[in-house]
Design a protein around this nucleic acid. Structure first.
Lengths: 125, 125
DNA sequence: GTTAGTGTCATAGCTTTCTATTACACTATA
DNA sequence: TATAGTGTAATAGAAAGCTATGACACTAAC
């Protein structure tokens, strides 16, 4: 897995699991791969995996059964809140970054619209 | 100045100067405060200021006159490109983060619109 | 020429993050 | 009860970033 070397890896791994859960690629009650396997898959050390998982467990997003594995919470409300928290966080971050750069709300929306337009220049032919 | 402790301070200082220049609070040819003064203002060490400035100089955004100070480039084209680079970068980042979270382009625009709506709930009375 | 203000550089030490490695604890099952 | 698969934990070392500090080089003005 590719990491942004300006941000701690364990933090990026947390974001990765957020994504997996929010997009339902990991569903409530699902068992995660073993920590040693995750370490191989994400090309990091077991301790780094562990640090990320530990925080997710503290947040109630995952739970651990010693000797069995780590699992996604079965509390649908927690997952709903997680999704809201993560998405809202991204939007707020975007808004305030562009605000600092002097853009008006209308300009922000226009900039996004323009970017989406570009992304759609059919990659066929 | 407040810093996000997940990101190197020198990197955040670079962003700060980008903002200052893009919003024209620092204009072409302007002299920056001395490095020792900046260190006090931003509550970091001179070496950390130096590292940020050095990269900005390498990028051509600033130039240094030994014994005199650091100055904003007078090349308007460089500044124009900087603005485009920084704003585009933010938009692209936002788009891809939300894409990873499973949102459609339409949902992204809606989420931004909703946030702007919230921000405008008149804070008066 | 001296002084004050400026950029530049180097060293040493601290903290955080990450790695490698080893060990221990628990669960299920043959 | 032995074994394989799992989570958990501790240690030591490397690398990056930040700080504190001191020194040096250049410019302008007295």
């Amino acid at each position: 897995m590719k990491f942004d070397d300006r941000i701690p890896i364990y933090y990026q791994i947390k974001q990765y699991f957020y994504q997996q859960i929010i997009t339902q690629q990991l569903q409530p009650g699902d068992k995660l791969p073993g920590v040693r396997q995750l370490a191989v898959d994400l090309t990091v050390n077991v301790n780094t995996i562990q640090r990320a998982l530990q925080e997710l467990i503290t947040e109630g997003v995952l739970f651990s059964k010693r000797g069995l594995g780590n699992f996604v919470t079965t509390d649908h409300d927690t997952i709903k809140q997680l999704k809201h928290r993560v998405v809202s966080g991204q939007v707020a971050w975007y808004y305030h970054q562009l605000e600092k750069l002097g853009l008006s709300p209308a300009s922000m929306q226009q900039a996004l619209a323009d970017y989406i337009e570009e992304e759609n220049h059919d990659p066929k032919s």
